[in-house]
Every structure is written in structure tokens, then in C-alpha cells.
């Protein structure tokens, strides 16, 4: 494992912990998109299906369990926790899951590395992860009032994606037979979606003002 991959995973872990910490300690999910969180739970459920049959390393298994556990806990908190769920703004978080789910499923059935159940689901999870942040970005733009933790959460997620791209470049030049076009294209699109957010995040950080996205 190279340093970019490790840093990417740790940033991903940090993003999830920041969000869980916010929800657990402040008992509020204001500004958090349940739609995005449900999509991530589905991303992990479909991608880590191999957890029972395909042992890569102790590290991989633990990380998979953490991402599965944390994503389902976050969804549980927002839907079921008696205090947290009151802060969920359903009327602002209106993005339709199906608009993302269906195209990803169709695309995974058509464009994949191998047409097997496991591989199609894996590919579906890649496509879905690429766009799963959209409901959250739309919500941020709508509410405009972004608290620090939510801003940090999205920033860390974007940083994780950017580090994964560096990891792929590194692996491409250091490993033989390391070519995964589908992963790379989906991952690059995913990272580009954060471009706008990054711009405003850095602006607010540089000028030391509250993060606000333009309407």
C-alpha cells in the first residue's frame, strides 16, 4: 500500500468520523442529506458484498466493516433517533434516489469488467459512489448556511477522492497490469463534482469567513 492510498483511506475515515461525531454529540443532522447517506450505505453494501468470500487483508476487512457500520449508523440516526431525526429537514433534501440509482444500474449492466453478479454490483457501487454526493451538494447550495462540521465532512470526502487519483497514478507506474479504466473514469468524475465546493471552501478558509455557496 502506498502513501496516497493510506492517506486517502484515512481521510475517508476522518470524514465519516466527523459526521458521526457531529450527529452523536450535537444530536443534530442539520445540513446533512439523508439521501446521500442512504446512497453511501447502498454503495458499501453492494461493494463489500465480497467481505465473506474474498479476503484481501486484515486492514481491508476492518475498513470495510467500519464503512458499512458507520454508513448504516448515520442513516439510522437520521431516520430513527428520537432527537436527531427532528433536525432533519426533509423539505430541503428532495433529490430523488431513483434518478441516480437507475442510470447507475443500467450502466453497470452494460459497462463492466466482467458480467458476473459480483462484478456488476461492484461496478454499480463505483458508478453510484461517483454521484452519491450530489444530493448533499444540492442541499448545501440550498440551505447556504453551512456549519463547520458539515463543510469539513464534504471537504474530507473530496480530499479522499483526490488522494485516490494520486494512488492510481502511483500504482499505474509502479505495478504491472494495473489498469482499471472503469474505476478511474468513475473516480475522476466523482472528484470533479467537488471542484466547485473546493473553490468556495478554500476561499472561505483564505478569507477566514463562513463558508457559503452562491445560490
Amino acid at each position: 500500500m502506498n502513501i496516497f492510498r493510506l492517506a486517502g483511506d484515512m481521510t475517508h475515515l476522518a470524514s465519516v468520523l466527523v459526521l458521526l461525531l457531529k450527529i452523536h454529540t450535537i444530536k443534530s443532522c442539520a445540513g446533512v442529506s439523508l439521501k446521500t447517506q442512504e446512497l453511501y450505505a447502498l454503495v458499501f453494501a453492494t461493494r463489500y458484498l465480497d467481505i465473506f468470500f474474498n479476503f484481501v487483508s486484515f486492514y481491508n476487512t476492518i475498513m470495510k466493516l467500519i464503512f458499512l457500520g458507520s454508513s448504516f449508523s448515520i442513516v439510522w440516526y437520521i431516520r430513527r433517533h428520537r432527537i436527531v431525526r427532528r433536525s432533519y429537514d426533509k423539505d430541503q433534501d428532495t433529490f430523488r434516489h431513483l434518478f441516480l440509482l437507475l442510470p447507475c444500474l443500467l450502466l453497470a449492466l452494460v459497462i463492466n469488467e466482467r458480467f458476473t453478479f459480483k462484478e456488476v454490483l461492484w461496478t454499480f457501487s463505483l458508478y453510484l459512489e461517483a454521484v452519491a454526493i450530489l444530493p448533499q451538494l444540492v442541499l448545501l447550495q440550498r440551505t447556504r448556511n453551512i456549519d463547520n462540521l458539515t463543510g469539513q465532512y464534504v471537504f474530507l470526502l473530496g480530499a479522499y477522492r483526490a488522494l485516490y487519483i494520486l494512488n492510481w497514478i502511483y500504482r499505474y507506474f509502479t505495478e504491472e497490469h494495473y489498469v482499471h479504466w472503469i474505476t478511474w473514469i468513475a473516480g475522476t468524475i466523482q472528484t470533479l463534482l467537488y471542484g466547485d465546493f473546493f473553490y468556495y471552501y478554500f476561499q472561505s478558509w483564505k478569507n477566514n469567513v463562513r463558508l457559503e455557496l452562491p445560490a
Binding site: 481491508n60 464503512f67 485516490y164 497490469h177
Partner: peptide, 10 residues
């Protein structure tokens, strides 16, 4: 020297 089965990234 074929590619190993499965995916090793998260």
C-alpha cells in the same frame, strides 16, 4: 502472471 482475483481497494 495474471491479475489477482477481486479488488484490493476500498
Amino acid at each position: 502472471d495474471s491479475e489477482p482475483e477481486g479488488h484490493d481497494e476500498l
